[in-house]
């Protein structure tokens, strides 16, 4: 017998009688959040910054003042092509993105209770982009911020081939529990809300 069948047979023989699957009633977790205030608070808790903006152009000019020394820059948001110093079509392998300083991506889903922003294959020409960049900038519209993870998954019927909730810059506390921002992923996260 293959290991597959062996494992499945044993589980079938050893499992208890079928128990019912509980239903999730998301309304019982609803504490009546002020969604935007909570989102901003939680992004700060997880180590990110939130800025308000009105247009994509305003995002670009603000990013240029925050990171004046950035050399290699890439943005996927509409109408900001002039910002890019990188042509992804010339990138043969993801490893060549190692020196990327700034990446700007627009997201269509964020969560207030934990400051997480969803980014997926839908927005990412290459999956490694939001991890390999030194500084990550995410843009999200107010109406796309949901209160809890339950509502986020109601919207996420399709997670596409790859998708990730990003909450703050990468971090670690593995040396004596001291929090250090900037482990393997982005060193900073700035979120523009429009």
């Amino acid at each position: 017998m293959s290991s597959r069948d062996h494992i499945l047979n044993r589980i079938n023989a050893n499992k208890p009688e079928l128990l019912t699957l509980p239903n999730i009633d998301a309304s019982i977790f609803d504490a009546g959040l002020n969604v935007m205030a909570e989102f901003i608070k939680k992004v700060e808790v997880v180590g990110g910054n939130v800025l308000e903006t009105t247009s994509n152009d305003a995002v670009i000019s603000k990013v240029e003042t925050i990171f004046p020394d950035a050399q290699i820059k890439y943005s996927t948001i509409a109408g900001t092509e002039a910002f890019n110093t990188l042509d992804l079509t010339t990138i043969k392998k993801s490893q060549d993105l190692e020196d990327l300083d700034i990446l700007i991506i627009e997201s269509d889903l964020a969560v207030a209770e934990n400051g997480a922003v969803w980014v997926s294959d839908k927005q990412l020409p290459l999956r490694v982009l939001p991890f390999i960049t030194k500084h990550l900038v995410l843009v999200v519209s107010k109406e796309n911020v949901v209160p809890y993870m339950h509502q986020a998954y109601e919207k996420l019927s399709d997670t596409s081939g790859f998708g990730v909730f990003i909450a703050g810059p990468s971090k670690t506390a593995d040396i004596e529990q001291s929090l250090v921002i900037g482990a393997h992923g982005a060193l900073s996260l700035t979120i523009f809300v429009k």
Binding site: I24, A26, K42, V45, V46, V111, E113, N114, G115, A116, S120, F131, Y148, M149, H150, A152, Y153, T159, F162, G163, V164, F165, I166, A167, G168, P169, S170, K171, A173, G185
Partner: peptide, 22 residues
């Protein structure tokens, strides 16, 4: 939605881990 709300809060007190990769 249930488990990602439970996991990081129980582990380190963070509201969620930095990356929840699907």
């Amino acid at each position: 939605g249930v488990f990602l709300r439970l996991l990081a809060r129980s582990a380190t007190g963070q509201p969620v881990t930095t990356y929840s990769s699907h």
